[in-house]
């Protein structure tokens, strides 16, 4: 009985987490396709007041205005690209969570590749350096067999 109570209380606490969305009922479009596009866009648009929150979940006034605006643009027949452009024209690239590839963000975008190639270069260097001594140590087949022989001997003894 107590366990059921515990479960009930736990679910009561957890349940609203999924339901709480800043998108208010009066904003939702009747056209489900457009609405889902609007949701996709607003998840990628930064709230300019709360900054680390997308406007999709933000409760600020400007976020609500932008959500309504996005839906208006979609109803007017804008493509997703055009909607993003509309927002960037007014708020700059800052409003996008995913920064576009420009001269100033090139470093950001190519950094992982750069680090990867640096890693490859270092790895190749290390392996090359290690290979001559590798040969002298391990390419000696007789040594190798002796080692495995001794292992088998040990197993046999047990």
């Amino acid at each position: 009985m107590n366990f059921i109570k515990f479960l009930l209380i736990t679910f009561l606490y957890l349940a609203p987490v999924d339901i709480i969305l800043a998108v208010e009922p009066d904003e939702v479009l009747t056209d489900l396709k457009l609405e889902s596009r609007a949701r996709d866009i607003s998840a990628n648009v930064r709230c300019v007041v709360c900054q680390n929150e997308p406007i999709d979940t933000s409760n600020s006034g400007v976020a609500r205005d932008l959500r309504i605006l996005i839906r208006e643009r979609l109803l007017a027949g804008d493509s997703n690209k055009e909607v993003y452009k509309y927002l960037v024209d007014r708020y700059g690239n800052f409003i996008l969570f995913k920064p576009p590839l420009t001269l100033s963000t090139a470093f950001l975008w190519f950094m992982p590749l750069l680090v990867f190639f640096l890693g490859v270069v270092i790895l190749v260097g290390v392996l090359k350096k290690a290979s001559p001594s590798n040969k002298s140590r391990f390419s000696n087949v007789s040594n190798d067999t002796k080692f495995s022989d001794s292992l088998e001997n040990k197993k046999g003894k047990k």
Partner: peptide
């Protein structure tokens, strides 16, 4: 409506 505010890109 705050629309001109958005056109000017204001945050508050």
């Amino acid at each position: 409506s705050g629309r001109t505010g958005i056109d000017w890109g204001i945050t508050g």
